[in-house]
């Protein structure tokens, strides 16, 4: 029973962490390797907010605002010139991640920072005491997933974004301002990633490299998911589940590479991954 809860909550955490990367990859076809840095930025937003004595929950909107503002600058200065060179975009965003990481180090120092728990204690589920916060992450994942569903299906921006995903040339010919769609998507993606960074703080320590640990896992999941949030949810459940099982029954070290290895194998067999393209 605990295993089942572990599987679901692990998948939820992975989903929250990878969602911002997927939004950007889905629409822009750019792999944002600064993803880890945006997570770290979110973590330090939590540190800064609580450092000023504010309510820790306030870190969520702050992180989203800071993340999307930085994302906007990044899209214009770094990503925009590289749309035709996707491999170079990986490298440039990776370099940007280094810069952001070093700026954070210069500002906050190298030490591990601690933030107060957003939700503490355990809750009784089916006769088991389980971490309240991990269960809260399931809710967060549902909110993020449904939020994107509403955004994509129900708004004008979503319609434009879907048009850009399907056929960018045609979308532009139809008068959709693809540059604006890209900018907005990138900002939402980075904002969401910074927000995910805040949500991670109760689960990991905050240090300048905290995002790096999540980057590869998120990247592999997005490769498998393509541009679909549904596929990402499935991938998180399947591979997050596998990770939990391997960590519990085989070894935590092997568990750490389960997601990456399994995703690589899936992509070898079916290059499109789980996406129904």
């Amino acid at each position: 029973m605990t295993i089942l809860l572990d599987v679901i909550t692990t998948a939820a955490i992975l989903f929250v962490v990878a969602a911002g990367l997927l939004a950007i990859f889905g629409v822009l076809k750019i792999i944002n390797f600064a993803h880890g840095a945006w997570l770290t930025v979110g973590g330090y937003c939590a540190v800064a907010t609580t450092g000023m004595g504010l309510n820790p929950w306030l870190a969520l909107p702050v992180a989203f605002a800071v993340g999307s503002a930085l994302g906007g600058i990044t899209e214009v200065l770094v990503v925009r010139p590289l749309y035709r060179r996707p491999l170079d975009a990986i490298l440039a965003t990776w370099g940007l991640g280094i810069v952001v990481g070093q700026l954070i180090t210069l500002w906050f120092g190298r030490d591990v920072q601690f933030t107060p728990n957003l939700l503490s204690g355990t809750i009784n589920v089916f006769g088991l005491d389980y971490s309240f916060y991990r269960l809260f992450m399931v809710l967060a994942a549902l909110v993020v997933g449904l939020g994107f569903a509403v955004l994509l299906e129900g708004t004008r921006l979503g319609l434009s974004a879907r048009a850009v995903i399907m056929n960018e040339t045609l979308a532009r010919a139809l008068g959709i301002d693809t540059a604006k769609v890209r900018l907005t998507t990138f900002m939402i993606g980075t904002g969401l990633t910074a927000l995910a960074g805040v949500l991670l703080t109760p689960l990991t320590s905050v240090d300048p490299d905290m995002g790096l640990a999540w980057l590869i896992g998120a990247f592999m999941l997005v490769m498998v998911a393509g541009s679909s949030f549904g596929a990402l949810a499935v991938a998180c459940l399947v591979f997050g589940g596998a990770q939990t099982l391997v960590s519990t029954f085989v070894s935590p070290v092997l568990g750490g590479i389960t997601v990456a290895v399994l995703c690589a194998l899936v992509l070898r067999i079916s290059p499109k991954g789980f996406a129904r393209a």
Binding site: M220, V253, A260, V261, A264, R268
Partner: peptide
Amino acid sequence: LSFGYGTTPLYATVISLVLPIVVTQVAFS
């Protein structure tokens, strides 16, 4: 693994990311 017929250029990069992670974990364990 990387260059089977029909694999994308990005896939080779993906494999090249996974490989060092696997080797590092093996070294750790």
